[in-house]
């Protein structure tokens, strides 16, 4: 006789459960890749060392994109670095998250009228959390990281899925600004 108490879960529900368990591990062990392009990067040393100690949240710096979970874009991005950033983002292993620092990534900040930098980062790669300020306080940076952890818990950190779903839109924006995304230098040819 079939048990009436435990109705068997569908494959979808099982997947969901596994994903939730995975989310617990993912949010408690965020390894960062710091893409230190702008002056906001100076907020990271106090966040990492004894003043704010992000290791207690399980976060730590990693050396290469493949190992990292979260990409920190710290400040303005010139067109040249945007190419490298897109390369870097696409190399990271999924699930991956992006945190944008400073007003420069939100709307261009004080460089909004410069011809050499991009204004809105989320037109090129999906951004999960923005930390506003020029430059943001270290408390704000830490707050951004806990926000990201909360978003992973609520399953709202869906940037990497969005990048897959609307890939055409992102690619079109990238091409509009850059002409071509390919990097031409001695390492890539």
């Amino acid at each position: 006789m079939k048990s009436t108490k435990f109705s068997p879960m569908t494959q979808e529900q099982i997947d969901k459960k596994w994903w939730e368990i995975g989310n617990y591990f993912r949010r408690n062990s965020l390894w960062m890749l710091m893409y230190c392009t702008g002056c906001c990067a100076i907020e990271l040393p106090p966040a990492m060392t004894s003043a704010y100690d992000m290791e207690r949240l399980g976060m730590g710096p990693m050396a290469t994109p493949r190992q990292a979970d979260v990409l920190l874009v710290t400040g303005y991005l010139s067109l040249k670095t945007l190419r490298r950033l897109i390369y870097t983002y696409e190399q990271m292993s999924e699930p991956k998250y992006v945190v944008g620092f400073g007003s420069c990534t939100i709307n261009g900040g004080i460089y909004h009228d410069s011809h050499a930098v991009i204004n809105k980062l989320d037109q090129y790669i999906p951004v999960d959390v923005y930390v506003a300020g020029c430059m943001p306080n270290t408390e704000a940076v830490m707050n951004g990281f806990t926000d990201l952890m909360g978003m992973i818990k609520n399953k709202t950190a869906r940037g990497w899925l969005d990048y897959k779903e609307r890939n055409d839109w992102y690619k079109k924006n990238q091409l509009d600004s850059l002409g071509e995304v390919l990097v031409h230098d001695e390492f890539h040819e």
């Binding site: 368990i21 995975g22 591990f25 993912r26 408690n28 062990s29 390894w31 060392t49 004894s50 100690d53 290791e55 207690r56 399980g58 493949r66 979970d69 292993s93 999924e94 699930p95």
Partner: peptide
Amino acid sequence: VQKRIGPKWYQEFIDIFKLFSKRSV
């Protein structure tokens, strides 16, 4: 030693299980 609080003692387990929960190329 570095005057920090430091991670949880089971942090390394979390790290390893997280790596197994990721997709890889």
